[in-house]
């Protein structure tokens, strides 16, 4: 079978699958939504950027939000949840549980929140590619 035909069959198979699969996969694992759509380069760059940002945030002793006592904590928690399985793995391993009052730790907390928000943008982008709104 020619290479073009193989690609067409693979693309048809991807298009027949559940329409929200890239969105959910991209949310759970950074870059996975693009990998499912065979956008290997884009997926790899997104995964590297988001995972590095999350890991650097933890390395700076940033905090993973766990409670929802006030509006700022709720917003921080929503941002953290955007990282999907990274957030769950961090919580399970007990990372980011201590609250340090240092400037670098505060930057780390922001890095973690922004990594989650960027992951949501990446997952929505995968969904847009899946639905044909973007090439």
């Amino acid at each position: 079978m020619a290479e073009a035909e193989k690609r067409a069959v693979a693309q048809k198979g991807a298009q027949d699958s559940f329409v929200f699969l890239p969105l959910i996969a991209g949310w759970l694992v950074p870059g996975a939504g693009h990998f499912l759509l065979r956008k290997w380069g884009r997926g790899a760059l997104l995964a590297i950027s988001i995972v590095c940002m999350f890991a650097l945030g933890l390395a700076m002793r940033g905090r993973l939000y766990a409670n929802a006592h006030d509006i700022l904590e709720i917003l921080g928690l929503l941002g953290d949840l955007g990282s999907g399985l990274l957030y769950i793995a961090g919580r399970v391993m007990g990372l980011g549980s201590e609250s340090l009052q240092t400037t670098v730790a505060d930057w780390g907390t922001r890095f973690i929140v922004v990594a989650g928000l960027l992951n949501i943008i990446a997952a929505v982008d995968a969904h847009n590619i899946r639905t044909g709104r973007k090439s």
Binding site: L46, I50, C52, M53
Partner: peptide, 8 residues
């Protein structure tokens, strides 16, 4: 990292 995600 933010620029990479925005660009893509």
């Amino acid at each position: 990292f933010a620029s990479t995600v925005f660009g893509i």
